[in-house]
């Protein structure tokens, strides 16, 4: 079970003076069960690539397969496989439209043709995954919730589709640290329980380092680095710098301390690693 891009290219505003190739000959396989972070600065092609994963954009060249079905083909098979891919856009709370939270989350499952009984089951499960109590929230208006809660409702709407591949485009943008941590905790629990693939598009290197096992770095419409996230952040510093991508703060701080003569090993990714390495370097362990 995998999502596969085979030599995919896409150009915006073709045959106009504004023509711009957003992704170029991208080949990529993401297996179900993987947790992947996608980083790269604005305009590197991240969003364009993501929109190919569930058929929002049709490639100019190449093919996209979900579980070996060409998702841009015709017929119910192609439609079904597009439905395997759930996409949470940036600021998804702006896309909430229904009068009650139940109705909003139920929209996707209903569209899929599930029975009312199954729809309710999915909505219950999805709301519980994002930490919203069904009996308290189902009949409330989504528009009276806080920003963090609204975002949870929007994510629940995608989770209720029971996707095998979950794409999240900057799910923490604009959230305070506590809401951000709880959204990631919920995503992690979901990931552990369902073993779907999670594809996280982020500008936060800390999030990429902390949650994703695999890291894709995009630049100028191509995937320039694809590897284990710890390994990439620790050992490909020059390459990352070249494409204008930062490293997690723990690594930056380790660099500063090393420059000042503290003998800190390269084995740092998160804050707790750094604390441990400092203690080792100072002979405190």
């Amino acid at each position: 079970m995998s999502i596969r891009l085979d030599n995919v290219s896409y150009t915006y505003m073709k045959k106009t003076p504004y023509e711009r190739t957003a992704i170029k000959e991208v080949t990529l396989t993401i297996e179900k069960g993987e947790y992947v972070a996608v980083i790269g600065h604005t305009g590197s092609g991240k969003s364009t690539m993501m929109q190919h994963l569930n058929g929002l954009l049709n490639p100019d060249q190449g093919k996209v397969f979900v579980d070996d079905v060409d998702i841009n083909g015709k017929g119910t098979e192609a439609k079904k496989s597009r439905n395997r891919v759930g996409m949470v856009f940036q600021y998804p709370e702006h896309q909430i439209f229904a009068e009650t939270i139940f109705e909003d989350v139920a929209f996707g499952p209903r569209n899929k043709g599930l029975s009312e009984e199954e729809v309710e089951k999915q909505v219950r499960a999805a709301l519980s995954f994002v930490g919203l109590d069904y009996d308290t929230f189902a009949n409330r208006s989504p528009f009276q919730l806080s920003g963090g809660q609204m975002r949870r409702v929007a994510i629940a709407g995608v989770i209720a589709m029971d996707p095998d591949y979950l794409i999240l485009d900057e799910p923490s943008a604009g959230l305070d640290p506590r809401s951000r941590d709880s959204i990631f905790r919920e995503i992690n629990e979901l990931y552990q329980a369902k073993k779907m693939a999670v594809i996280l598009v982020t500008h936060s290197m800390e999030e990429a380092a902390q949650y994703a096992k695999r890291l894709l770095v995009m630049a100028k419409g191509k995937i320039v680095i694809d590897g284990d996230s710890a390994e990439v952040f620790q050992n490909h510093r020059e390459a990352l710098k070249e494409v204008g991508v930062d490293v997690p703060q723990a690594i930056k701080l380790a660099d500063i301390l090393r420059e000042r003569g503290l003998d800190i090993s390269n084995d740092v990714l998160k804050t707790e690693d750094l604390v441990r390495q400092i203690k080792l370097a100072k002979g405190w362990l």
Binding site: D176, P177, R178, S179, Q249, A250, L253, T271, E272, L274, V275, I278, K279, K282, W284
Partner: peptide
């Protein structure tokens, strides 16, 4: 519900360890 900058966090962890 907030966090502190990483250097402050590391400093606090080290202090908590008695350093």
């Amino acid at each position: 519900g907030l966090e502190v900058p990483i250097a402050a966090e590391v400093a606090a962890e080290l202090r908590a360890g008695g350093h």
